[in-house]
C-alpha cells in the first residue's frame, strides 16, 4: 500500500505533559531522577524518596526513605515550619 492511500491514523499529542520527572511530595518541585534509580534526594528540600519506574522513562515516588524524612519532619515541626493554618 502506498503511503498516500493510507488513511491518517491520528496521533494527537497533548501539550504540557512532562515525563521522566516527578514532583517532590514535600516541596512540590519537579525532580529528575537518574534512569533506573531506586532512590533519590530532592535537591531543593532534602527529602529523600524511594523511586519506582512504572514505565522505562516514567518514575514515581514509591515511598519515603523513612528515617531521613522522619528526622527532617521532626526538625521542621520543632521549628514549627509545618505551618499551622
Amino acid at each position: 500500500m502506498s503511503e498516500s492511500t493510507k488513511k491518517n491514523t491520528d496521533k494527537k499529542t497533548v501539550k504540557g505533559r512532562t515525563s521522566g520527572q516527578f514532583r517532590c511530595l514535600y516541596c512540590f518541585k519537579r525532580i529528575t531522577a537518574p534512569p533506573g534509580a531506586k532512590s533519590t534526594t530532592c535537591p531543593h528540600c532534602g527529602y529523600a524518596w524511594r523511586i519506582s519506574w512504572f514505565s522505562p522513562g516514567e518514575p514515581r515516588i514509591r515511598g519515603p526513605v523513612w528515617e531521613n524524612n522522619e528526622a527532617m519532619t521532626r526538625k521542621i515541626m520543632a521549628e514549627s515550619k509545618g505551618g499551622s493554618k
Binding site: K12, V14, R17, L25, F54, S55, E58, R60, R62, G63
Partner: peptide, 26 residues
Amino acid sequence: TQVTSAKVSKTMQKLGTMFIWGTTNT
C-alpha cells in the same frame, strides 16, 4: 489520547488504584 496520556492513567495501567494508597501513605 487525552485520558491515557495523563500520568495518572499511565500509573493506573500498571498499578491500578493501589497507586493512590502508596502516594497517600507516603
